[in-house]
Amino acid sequence: MAEARRSIHVVAGVIRDARGRVLLARRTEGRDLAGLWEFPGGKCEPGETPEQALARELHEELGIDARVGAALIRVPQQYPDKALVLDVRIVEAWTGAVRGREGQALAWVPADKLARYDMPPADRPVVAALLQSPVYAVTPALGDDLDPWLERLASALDSGVRRVQLRSPGTPPERWRSAVERAIERCRAVGAEVLLNGDIETARRLRIGVHLRAAQLGTLDARPLGPDVLVGASCHDAHDLAAAERLGCDFAVLGHVAATPSHPDKSPMGWTGFAALREHTSLPLYAIGGVGPADIDIARGHGAQGVAGIRGFFDVG
Rank of each mutant, 00 (worst) to 15 (best):
M1S: 02
A2W: 02
E3P: 01
A4K: 12
A4C: 00
S7C: 02
H9F: 11
V11E: 02
G13P: 07
A18R: 15
G20L: 09
L24M: 09
L24H: 10
A25P: 04
R26W: 01
R27A: 14
G30A: 08
G30I: 01
D32P: 08
L33R: 05
G35N: 05
L36R: 14
P40H: 03
G42E: 10
K43H: 03
K43Q: 14
C44D: 01
E45D: 13
P50W: 08
E51A: 14
G63W: 10
I64S: 04
R74K: 15
V75C: 08
V75K: 14
Q78V: 04
P80T: 04
D81V: 02
L86H: 09
D87S: 09
R89W: 13
E92C: 02
T95E: 15
A97D: 13
V98S: 00
R101Y: 06
L106K: 07
P110F: 10
D112C: 08
D118S: 13
D118R: 14
P120G: 05
A122W: 03
A122M: 15
L130I: 07
S133Q: 14
P134W: 11
Y136T: 00
T139K: 03
L142G: 12
L142Y: 06
D144F: 13
L157D: 01
G160Q: 08
V164W: 06
V164A: 06
Q165K: 13
P169Q: 13
G170V: 14
E174V: 05
S178N: 01
I184E: 13
E185Y: 12
A189Y: 09
A189N: 11
V190E: 11
L196Y: 00
L196C: 00
G198I: 12
I200F: 06
T202P: 02
T202A: 14
T202K: 04
R204M: 09
A214E: 12
A215P: 00
G218F: 00
T219E: 15
T219Q: 15
A222C: 07
P224Q: 04
P224D: 01
V231N: 12
G232R: 07
G232F: 06
D237I: 08
E245Q: 15
R246L: 08
R246D: 11
G248T: 10
C249S: 12
C249R: 13
F251Y: 15
F251P: 05
L254E: 10
A258D: 02
T260G: 04
H263M: 08
W271K: 11
A275Q: 07
L277R: 15
L277Y: 08
R278E: 02
S282M: 14
L285P: 05
A287T: 03
I288L: 12
V291K: 11
G292M: 00
P293D: 07
I298Y: 01
R300C: 02
A304N: 12
Q305M: 10
Q305C: 02
V307Y: 09
I310P: 12
R311D: 14
F313M: 13
F314N: 07
D315S: 14
G317F: 03
